[in-house]
Design a protein around this nucleic acid. Structure first.
Lengths: 341, 341
DNA sequence: TTGTAGGCGTTATCAA
DNA sequence: TTGATAACGCCTACAA
């Protein structure tokens, strides 16, 4: 409520001196007496610094804009939350705030545009991609964010030729569970994807087909199903595929939540995991650990990815402009949900 | 990067006209020709509005500060995420951004102070409490935030006499699973709490004892255990209590994650849920739905609580100052983890 | 329909 | 050690 001017008036000095002291308590440019008086005034007048005014003057806000092109409510997605958690941990440690923008738009491009529109003043951005984005949209989003002239890092996005700061999650577009299942003797594998639209699905589908073919297995289009990263939808999809493809011996799910739902579906169809059907998940979330049986999964190390993205951005904000790609590898976590065939 | 001045120069008009048009595309105070020229310039110069400058001028930022007094990384807690999701949904719909502040402090009070220190400029705040806060700290945090003179809403906090905007989650300090378990014939119930410190634990413990006593059951101090809202710690605590109190017939957990961990522990001790031991959770998270057996739980309706908190705050920002308390009730979700005794 | 001028709260430069 | 003053980018009277 109160401003630096009022503090100055209260103490009987100029705003400049107040500012100097408040920004550097050890400054030698303010006398000890004055310092005490200022402290007193700050308390008496409930002074709080206005970040916005200060960032206007310094051209630095210590605020990072987080751009997430999704139409769904935030903070509901396991992957995104883990990423955000890593980002927040690092940004917070360096005194940076995170700003999430509103959006009413209906497409990934529109959302990014809308969010960027009112965002000038942020020191940098982290751009997510989500299962909603096509490759084309991702490129456009990058162009859009480049126009701000501010440093940014992309996260959760397929590798892209643009010379930008990028954290890549190895295995995000790889059906990494497949070779493992094959090595365990499975030849009748169902791929449980998340979103139907978006790049991720495209890449994963192709990868799946390639790997299956390489193992000499004939690919059946019906063996690819979709769960929208949602427990209920995954459950239904698995129930259905169990009927149409009773020969299935393994399910490779693109998230632990869908894997847990798959296990439910298998069990309720009267079969057991892993004896009748093996299930592998992805993300190494709590769901994988707590399911019965516990789920063998691939840890994408997304928390680390978040940390790295923040590191990269902070470097860039400090003027380090050489574009870097950081690649985060996944780790296989073997538990109880996969059996040898 | 570019400013309203540059746009004006580019078009050959005054900054005022640009500002007027940009803030009201339908304004009659700017000619159609000029509008087109401005649009062109905006594109050509990659103009993005500086929120900070504009909020300085208007004394309104459309940014809400989110204050969460925790030392743990954000976005990792089921309860908090659900709350945040509700808040974001509503705020976003009304065009408000959310700002998360950094903090390096080691106590709830210090964190709040530190975050508030640089936060002037926000239109309002949402103040969380966490399992780390004692009642005393909560009161101090409220006093602190009141000093900003900005509207704020408290969330996830025990009812407090102060005349403030408050969203109360009914059942947050109530061991609501207890009466249910008693009604099912259980008399040997273990209470699985989260954090040891903090108000919540205190309230819950008292409530538990009262309810147990009312049912004529003698209370055993050993029947109260702690899992820190963490799967691993809850698992160990349950394993242990199963040894020391083999007569236990039911576990009342304060979170679904801990309930799922409890089920694991029970199963691995060679007993079954719910036949040997019943388990009830809280929060109706995905964990409760996906566990085997699925978990009977109490839905605290935290998403709704988040929505309500945002509503309340938005009202307050609009000048509606009459303090309101909104009470969100819980809902019992009966599933498979509780048996009649 | 457009322009001028002052101010929002803070900081930086320069002078006293 | 302190004070004036201008500037950051935008908005709003008011004047033209």
């Amino acid at each position: 409520m109160s401003s630096i001017k009022e503090i100055a008036k209260y103490v009987g000095i100029s705003p400049a001196s107040v500012s100097i002291y408040l920004n550097d308590k050890n400054s030698t440019r303010v006398s000890a007496k004055t310092k005490l008086l200022i402290d007193e005034a700050v308390l008496a007048l409930n002074y709080h610094k206005n970040v916005f005014a200060s960032s206007l003057a310094t051209q630095e806000s210590r605020i990072i804009g987080i751009i997430i092109p999704t139409m769904l409510p935030l903070f509901q997605n396991d992957y995104t939350n883990t990423l955000l958690s890593g980002i927040q941990t690092r940004l917070s440690a360096f005194g940076y705030s995170m700003l999430f923008f509103p959006s009413s738009a209906k497409s990934s491009i529109e959302i990014v545009k809308e969010q960027l529109e009112k965002s000038a003043g942020c020191d940098g951005y982290i751009l997510f991609s989500t299962g909603f984005c096509t490759m084309d949209q991702i490129r456009k989003n990058i162009t859009e964010i480049e126009k701000t002239g501010r440093p940014f890092v992309t996260l959760n996005i397929p590798s892209v030729p643009e010379r930008i700061h990028q954290v890549l999650i190895e295995g995000l577009e790889t059906a990494s569970g497949i070779p493992y299942l094959i090595s365990k003797g499975h030849r009748n594998i169902v791929l449980l994807l998340g979103r139907r639209a978006g790049v991720h699905a495209r890449f994963l589908k192709n990868d799946f087909k390639t790997r299956i073919a390489a193992a000499g297995i004939k690919c059946d289009e019906n063996s690819i199903i979709y769960g929208e990263y949602d427990a209920l939808q995954a459950y239904s999809a698995v129930k259905e595929v169990l009927e149409t493809r009773p020969e299935t011996t393994a399910i490779c799910s693109m998230s632990d939540i869908m894997a847990a739902a798959a296990i439910k579906a298998v069990q309720e169809s009267g079969r057991t995991v892993p004896d009748d059907i093996s299930v592998i998940g992805r993300n190494n979330s709590l769901h994988a650990m707590l399911a019965t049986p516990s789920i063998t999964t691939i840890d994408l190390n997304m928390h680390q990815a978040g940390l790295s993205a923040a590191n990269l951005l902070l470097d860039a904000v400090d003027g380090n402009t050489a574009p870097q790609k950081i690649i985060i590898s996944g780790t296989l976590i073997e538990r109880e949900s996969v059996a040898v065939r």
